[in-house]
């Protein structure tokens, strides 16, 4: 009897051989099809399918070859233990001690060397400072470009009048001169035609029922672009925080930890909607020093 460890792992080597040959032929034909498709500017998807079939035919054939027509063993290999002799360990420790001794003996030099390395690391960090660009974290974290009497403008830069929205309407607005501003983006909504006092102290903030809230979610900063006019709720598309407009965009559902800041609105003498002053608090998600530098209104 022949050695079964080297025997074909099939009783029908001929059939397997033929099947493998078919696979390889599929691969070859696919190459032709691939070239033809490319030449005839066929659809890219067909190109991809032929491309895939080149590899699949080849792969299946080669695997079958390896699995059925090659020695399967079992073969065994001894494992070498992942340890060394006691002597080696001793010598390794000695070699290490040789250096450690001479370093230990010069205490002052050793300490200085450590200090130099520390300073060196700082020196490496300093160039990274340039990554910040022109700005270091500062006032822009706390303020937007809304100020006293800043007109609200649409995405096209047109100032917004009291006729801008029907009841139930919503529109994205920006401080004039800063269209597209990531921090100044504000959602203007109109739940009713009469002033809507969302919180005590905000009696004058909603002329003709217009309300404006920062569009930057207080959770992770996504634009809160979804206004449910019947429920008078704003919904953040990223993590589904829900804000109740009529109580000052307080968070009523989801992970957002704070209400959306409300922009105090007024109507100027030309009839345009303007901000009374900047947002009362930093807009957007929290950060470490959010409460530190903030001191009241920005005029």
């Amino acid at each position: 009897m022949s050695d079964p460890r080297y025997a074909d792992r099939t009783s029908r080597p001929k059939t397997v051989e033929r099947t493998i040959a078919v696979c390889f032929t599929v691969s070859l034909l696919s190459t032709v099809g691939f070239a033809a498709t490319y030449w005839q500017t066929g659809p890219d998807m067909l190109l991809g399918v032929f491309f895939a079939m080149i590899f699949l035919g080849m792969g299946v054939g080669v695997i079958a070859w390896g699995k059925y027509l090659m020695p399967q063993g079992p073969f065994v290999e001894e494992r070498h233990p992942l340890t060394t002799t006691e002597e080696d360990k001793q010598e390794f420790a000695e070699a290490f001690g040789r250096g450690a001794d001479s370093i230990k003996r010069r205490k002052l030099l050793g300490k200085l060397f450590v200090a130099v390395n520390g300073v060196f690391a700082i020196a490496l960090i300093i160039p990274l400072r340039s990554l910040l660009g022109a700005k270091t974290p500062g006032s822009e974290l706390y303020h937007t470009n809304f100020g006293k009497g800043t007109r609200l403008v649409t995405v096209n830069g047109e100032p917004v009048t009291l006729a801008a929205l029907d009841v139930g309407g919503a529109q994205t607005v920006f401080p004039e001169g800063y269209v597209g501003s990531a921090t100044g983006q504000t959602i203007l909504i109109r739940p009713q035609t009469t002033p809507l006092v969302t919180k005590p102290g905000r009696e004058t903030w909603s002329p003709a029922g217009y309300l404006a809230f920062s569009k930057v979610c207080t959770h992770a900063g996504c634009p809160v672009g979804l206004y449910l006019q019947e429920f008078k709720e704003l919904l953040c598309p990223c993590h589904q925080s829900v804000f109740d407009v009529s109580t000052g965009a307080t968070q009523v559902f989801g992970p957002a930890p704070r209400p959306l800041p409300q922009l105090p609105l007024a109507v100027n003498s030309q009839g345009y909607l303007v901000s009374q002053h900047d947002y009362d608090e930093p807009i957007g998600p929290g950060f470490w020093s959010r409460g530190a530098l903030w001191n009241g209104h920005n005029s």
Binding site: G48, V49, F51, A52, M53, I54, F55, L56, G57, M58, G59, V60, G61, V62, I63, A64, W65, G66, K67, M70, P71, Q72, G73, P74, F75, V76, E77, E78, R79
Partner: peptide, 28 residues
């Protein structure tokens, strides 16, 4: 010890074939 099939040719064939199949499936 380790018991199995040797690198050459058995495993080489299987793994090369597998590589082709993976390319093929991802291309598909």
């Amino acid at each position: 010890n380790v018991v199995g099939a040797p690198m050459f040719p058995t495993f080489m064939a299987k793994t090369t074939g597998y590589f082709f199949v993976i390319v093929g499936v991802i291309a598909l």
